[in-house]
C-alpha cells in the first residue's frame, strides 16, 4: 500500500501504469482521479488546498488500511495533493486492485468517501467574486455513513 501527500502536481496516467504492475494475480484495477472543478454556475480561477501534513499521513494511512482489510484488496494507493491549483489539475488519485471488479470498485468508493471527510485538507476557492473557504457538505457525511 502506498500513501503520498504531496505539494506538487502528479501524472495520473503514469501513476496508473506503475500501479498496474504491483501485483500479478489481480483481475481488476479501478482508478479514480479527482480534479479541480470550475463550472458556469460556480466558476473559479484557482483552488488553494491547505493541509496538515503530519495528520494527513496518519489519517490517510488509517483510511487505506481499513479499505484494504474490508474489501480484501491486493493493493491500493492514495495520492493527495495540496497547494495552489487551477481548474483541470488533479487533486487526488485513488487506485485499488483486487481479483474481481466488485471489490476494486467498492474499495475505491469507500476510500474516496472517507478522504472527503476524514483527511485534513481544506479547500479555498478564488473566483470572479473573490475568495472563500469551501464548506463541508452534509452529502459527504451521508456518503461516508453508508459504509458503517
Amino acid at each position: 500500500m502506498t500513501v503520498r501527500v504531496i505539494a506538487h502536481g502528479f501524472d495520473p496516467g503514469g501513476q496508473t501504469n506503475l500501479f498496474l504492475k504491483e501485483h500479478n494475480s489481480a483481475g481488476a484495477v479501478v482508478t479514480f482521479t479527482g480534479l479541480v472543478r470550475s463550472s458556469p454556475s460556480d466558476p473559479i480561477t484557482s483552488l488553494m488546498l491547505e493541509c496538515y501534513p503530519d495528520l494527513a499521513i496518519n489519517q490517510v494511512e488509517t483510511i487505506l488500511a481499513q479499505g484494504l482489510t474490508r474489501f480484501e484488496l491486493l493493493a491500493a494507493t492514495i495520492i493527495h495533493r495540496y497547494g495552489t491549483m487551477v481548474p483541470g489539475d488533479p487533486i487526488v488519485q485513488v487506485m485499488t486492485m483486487s481479483p474481481h471488479r466488485e471489490a476494486a470498485f467498492e474499495g475505491a468508493q469507500f476510500l474516496m468517501d472517507y478522504l472527503k471527510t476524514d483527511a485534513p485538507f481544506w479547500k479555498k476557492e478564488t473566483g470572479p467574486t473573490g475568495t472563500k473557504w469551501v464548506d463541508a457538505k452534509s452529502a459527504d457525511d451521508r456518503a461516508k455513513a453508508r459504509w458503517k
Binding site: 496538515y52 493527495h80 472527503k116 471527510t117 485534513p120 481544506w122 464548506d135 463541508a136
Partner: peptide
C-alpha cells in the same frame, strides 16, 4: 495540539 474546521479534502 491542532485546531481546525471540518475537513474538505478529496
Amino acid at each position: 495540539i491542532a485546531f481546525f474546521p471540518p475537513m474538505t479534502g478529496g
